[in-house]
Design a protein around this nucleic acid. Structure first.
Lengths: 349, 349
DNA sequence: CCTCGCCTTTGTAACGATCCAAATGTACCC
DNA sequence: GGGTACATTTGGATCGTTACAAAGGCGAGG
């Protein structure tokens, strides 16, 4: 059973063909499990494949067949647990389908996004899943990816000409409904002065969540003070820093719907610094249900978005589109679920 | 300026050549910025490239040149923020170098790891960065990746025949020193009965951290009760569940060095349930410095491992190896830094 | 006018797989 | 024995790019 040592040059189809005295075409048929080849021949070829340690060259096959076996996954912030979970979900499904994931991380820079997209395009992905950086422009993205490769927009809308990108599929969270549910829940707890805290107006998800909040407030006949709408960078640090602003107006809020969990956890710290105990003196809700939300003090009422499931869904959507590009583009809104925990207490008496 | 509409078929070198009446070879030279081509010709070709919206086909080029422009990144748990940060660091460097990241996530399953590795190998990566699943076998991994492609082992050792894989590069955290530092710090605070809590003996990082702990205890002449060495799945949930075990022995510990931050945060909850307040009645330390560690209640003393820097470093190491495979394999031990916070209080008086 | 060198350009054969039409058996029936 | 059907195998062209050797044009120098 002389094993061929793993030396420099790679083993190709021709080596196998030569090794067991058949044509390259036959070996190729064996590789693809064609029923055409004789049982006995197949066995001989398979033995030779093992013996020489053959590795299929998918790039060569893709070139010849004009196919692709990769999907590009471009994320604005891979380090964010939400997107990490999302990526894990995407990769899970793609892996099972024989596709490989081409990863690209843009660190929220539109410039880098374009660079990453063009670089990935050169590898000819069958499709692209893109969670755009803040401020991404539809026209520019289109010119980077070309009109041919299917693209699924995740999580955020892009700015600019709608016509430029109206053939892209979309997968968004139900931001508006989520924020409305959170707001309604706080109203149900008896709050009347409710703020919307954090996030960037530059991002579509923030605008949508604000819209849900406004909708609920309006429906309940509650008014909103300007000082209750505070923007901040959606991370814990800036959320602490900006929390003062909530209390600058004439009347202080008794509760806040926060842009996301990170912001909510930051606000908790800010409240502590003011001598307020979140979940007793002040109610708040988050968005995302990150791992930490369940175990913070107090545990955070928030909206579960199940990013891993979203990743799986995104992969399935793009695969469908790759399989059949003809149906009209589809926009999918994924539901979110309100998880009530101790942070959303009733107002102090 | 008639723009060619973005129709089905992809634009190739030949289309450009035909479009401006030069040979394919010339276009190829232009693409690669060769100084051979005449300035005037170059301009004409470049104009045509733009006009037709040409996209370089790197797969075809790689096939011809027998090169590769991708690096495989295979992680045992992408959803873990530690690895997500790591991946972001890897991708950052690779992106800057013109390489593309092929992602593979194994969900801590050795079976899936082998499947993912073989699938990625078919795309002919120039190198592989592997953070193995628990229980991975060197021999099996070797047979999946072949002896040719450079591999960098990250974070964990693999079991089995050392000779099988002694030509792999390695990048590990200084687990032993980290745990020793944490233990010494607790000893310095006055603790004598210190436990080592959590982790799986199946993983080499856990064994190394235990070794550091044991080393420090021995050096200080402190003895260790068997009931102070508790295993658990390294997540918050199981850490809560197993925390009872710490107090089953004759003498209860007053402090614990935890396998990692997740475990430490779980133990905090377990302590609360026993009526003990962590950071006052019981001291503990973590490992990793996840975002949450700085803001837990109390803030967690832990070891910073800067996963993003590790990712960058891993990318650089594998790129070096790809560039020149000849130097002998190298093992790199990345330093960790003790961050003292409120959780590591002195023992109660 | 021929030769030489220089600057550009180009035809052709690869890279490793697949497709396709055509060629080889070989079994069976009339 | 010839013809037909069926099962199996195969050469050669091809995917989009690059390497290489060789060719073309052109000015200078002898």
């Amino acid at each position: 059973m002389g094993n061929i040592p793993p030396v420099g040059r790679k083993v190709t189809l021709s080596d196998i063909a030569a090794g067991c005295d058949v044509s390259r075409a036959t070996v190729s048929l064996v590789l693809r499990g064609s029923p055409l080849v004789n049982k006995h021949t197949r066995a001989r070829v398979e033995e030779e494949l093992r013996r020489q340690g053959y590795v299929y060259n998918r790039a060569a096959a893709n070139l010849r067949r004009r196919t692709s076996s990769s999907i590009a996954l471009v994320l604005n912030d891979l380090a964010n647990p939400f997107f990490a979970e999302f990526a894990a979900g995407v990769d899970e499904v793609l892996g099972d389908t024989g596709f490989v994931t081409l990863l690209g991380s843009t660190s929220e820079s539109t410039e880098r996004e374009l660079a990453v997209l063009s670089s990935l395009m050169e590898h000819g992905p069958a499709g692209i899943i893109l969670s755009p950086a803040e401020g991404s422009d539809a026209q520019q993205i289109l010119s980077a990816v070309g009109g041919v490769t299917p693209l699924l927009l995740f999580n955020r809308e892009v700015s600019g000409d709608v016509a430029a990108c109206d053939h892209w599929d979309r997968l968004f969270l139900d931001n508006q409904r989520g924020a409305r549910l959170a707001t309604e829940h706080l109203i149900g707890q008896g709050h009347k002065r409710i703020a919307f805290y954090g996030g960037h107006l530059g991002s579509s998800s923030c605008r949508q969540r604000r819209a849900g909040y406004t909708e609920a407030m309006k429906a309940a006949g509650l008014s909103v003070e300007p000082s209750w709408m505070v923007e901040c960078i959606p991370n814990r640090l800036d959320a602490v820093a900006q929390s003062e602003q909530l209390f600058q107006g004439k009347t202080a809020p008794t509760a806040a719907v926060c842009y996301n969990d990170a912001v909510a956890l930051g606000l908790m710290l800010g409240l502590h610094q003011r001598g307020l105990q979140p979940g007793r003196d002040f109610a708040l809700t988050g968005f995302d249900d990150i791992a930490e939300a369940a175990v913070s003090a107090p545990p955070l009422t928030t909206l579960a978005v199940t990013p891993r499931d979203r990743g799986r869904q995104a992969a399935e959507l793009i695969l469908q589109r790759v399989k059949d590009p003809s149906p009209p583009p589809r926009q999918t809104i994924a539901p979110v679920q309100l998880l009530v925990r101790a942070s959303s207490c009733p107002p102090p008496a």
